[in-house]
Simulated assay, not measured.
Amino acid sequence: MPNRPVLDFWFEFASPYSFLSALRIEAMAEAAGVALRWRPFLIGPIFAAQGWSTSPFNLFPSKGRYMWRDLERQTARSGVPMVKPSPFPQNSLVAARIALAGREAGWLPAFSKALFTAAFSEGRNIAEEAVLNAALRQAGADPGAALSASRSEEVKGRLRAEIEYAKSIGIFGAPTFVTEDGELFWGDDRLEEALDWSRHGR
């Protein structure tokens, strides 16, 4: 479809609600006639700038209990297995670098969905190279080449730049959806609204 509106999908591999969005966003965007840009980043530096040393779901126990129960409800509705990963949040630095290394190659969405599934449906540790390699193979990527690229200064710099850009446009959580006209929608429960805004605006 020519001249489709574009929606930026900012996500963090350690984010449970990013997991929910990643599993459903492609089909929903296709149905809405909206093109997607998958934008992996790290939310940790943004939290740190707010004075938080970890996820707010850990800092505020009541919020954390609600979040995990909410995830159980949401995944049960869609028939997706859900396992709380340990530790939480997971170290997603290498995962984000790998994803950015694959942006031009075309396997970023498939890798991302495979890794989210490993983390939140299987309880795997996404910082482990074996888990990363399995997700890369599932996405049709060469694990050796992808890991090598992720260690390059170019990709490391790309991730730092993405984090700084996310800060500059006001992103404070994940997932966040940003429309071409700069409208920002935070949270998996705002995905439908973000797609609608992409199509029609105000």
Score class of each variant (00 low, 15 high):
Ala118Thr: 00
Ala174Asn: 10
Val178Trp: 03
Ser148Met: 11
Ala76Trp: 06
Ala110Ile: 08
Val80Tyr: 13
Val83Met: 12
Phe185Gly: 10
Asp181Lys: 09
Glu122Asp: 14
Arg77Thr: 05
Phe120Met: 06
Asp188Gln: 08
Phe185Ile: 08
Lys113Phe: 07
Ala146Pro: 06
Arg73Asn: 07
Ala139Leu: 07
Phe120Thr: 11
Glu192Thr: 13
Gln138Ser: 14
Ser198Val: 04
Arg103His: 02
Phe172Tyr: 15
Leu108Tyr: 05
Ser148Gly: 14
Gln74Pro: 01
Leu195Thr: 14
Phe111Arg: 05
Glu153Ala: 14
Trp107Met: 08
Leu184Thr: 12
Glu154Lys: 11
Ala149His: 02
Leu132Lys: 06
Ala161Phe: 03
Glu122Cys: 13
Trp186Gly: 02
Ile126His: 09
Ala110Tyr: 04
Ala114Gln: 06
Phe185Trp: 00
Glu192Phe: 00
Phe88Arg: 04
Asp189Ala: 01
Gly144Asn: 06
Tyr165Gln: 14
Phe172Trp: 10
Glu162Gln: 14
Ala139Trp: 07
Trp107Cys: 04
Ser121Phe: 06
Arg73Trp: 05
Glu129Gln: 13
Gly182Cys: 03
Ala118Asp: 10
Glu104Tyr: 03
Glu122Ser: 14
Lys156Phe: 04
Leu159Tyr: 06
Ala194Cys: 10
Arg158Pro: 01
Val94Asn: 08
Phe172Pro: 02
Thr179Phe: 01
Gly157Ile: 08
Ile98Asn: 11
Arg160Pro: 00
Glu164Arg: 08
Ala194Gly: 09
Glu164Ile: 03
Gly170Phe: 01
Ala134Pro: 07
Leu100Cys: 09
Gly157Leu: 02
Ala146Ser: 14
Leu191Phe: 11
Trp186Phe: 15
Ser148Glu: 15
Trp107Thr: 01
Ser168Ala: 09
Thr176Ser: 15
Glu72Arg: 13
Ala149Asn: 03
Gly173Ala: 14
Gly140Glu: 10
Ser86Gln: 13
Arg73Ala: 07
Gln138Pro: 02
Val83Lys: 13
Leu136Pro: 05
Asp196His: 15
Leu184Asp: 03
Gly144Pro: 03
Arg137Val: 15
Arg103Thr: 06
Leu136Ser: 03
Arg77Pro: 00
Gly173Asn: 15
Gly144Arg: 01
Gln138Cys: 09
Ser168Lys: 10
Arg103Gln: 15
Ala76Met: 04
Ile171Met: 01
Thr179Gln: 07
Gln74Glu: 10
